[in-house]
Amino acid sequence: MMNLCKSLCPQTSRMLDIPPGRLKMDMLSPRSRQKEKVVIVMGPTGTGKSRLSIELATQFPAEIINSDKMQVYKGLDIVTNKVAEEEKSGVPHHLLGIANPNVDFTATNYCHTASLAVESISTRGLLPIIVGGSNSYIEALMDDEDFRLRLNYDCCFLWVDVSMPVLHKFVSRRVEQMVSMGMIDEARNIFDPYADYSTGIRRSIGVPEFDKYFRAEAFLDEENRARLLHEAICDVKKNTCKLACRQWEKINRLRKIKGWDIHRLDATEVFQKSGKEAEHAWEMLVARPSTAIVGQLLCGVPADKVPAIASVAKTMGYLRQCLVA
Rank of each mutant, 00 (worst) to 15 (best):
M1C: 14
K6I: 14
L8C: 11
T12D: 13
R22K: 14
D26A: 12
L28V: 15
L28R: 14
S32N: 15
Q34M: 13
M42Y: 02
G43M: 03
P44I: 04
K49W: 04
S50Y: 05
L52M: 08
I64W: 01
K82F: 00
K82T: 04
V83G: 03
S89R: 14
V91W: 06
H94E: 09
L96C: 03
G97D: 06
G97Q: 00
A107R: 11
N109H: 04
T113D: 15
S115N: 12
A117V: 06
V118P: 06
E119T: 10
I121E: 10
S122M: 05
G125M: 09
L126H: 12
V131I: 12
S136Y: 15
E139L: 05
A140I: 03
F147C: 13
D161I: 07
D161Q: 10
V175W: 03
M178Y: 07
V179W: 00
I184T: 00
E186K: 06
A187V: 08
R188I: 07
F191A: 04
D192E: 04
A195G: 12
T199K: 11
I201Q: 03
V207H: 01
F210H: 00
F219Q: 13
R227M: 08
L229D: 02
L229M: 13
A232D: 03
V236A: 03
K237Q: 15
N239H: 10
K258H: 03
D261C: 08
R264V: 09
V270G: 02
V270M: 06
K273G: 05
A281R: 03
P289T: 09
S290N: 03
T291H: 11
V294N: 01
A308M: 13
K314D: 14
M316N: 15
R320Q: 12
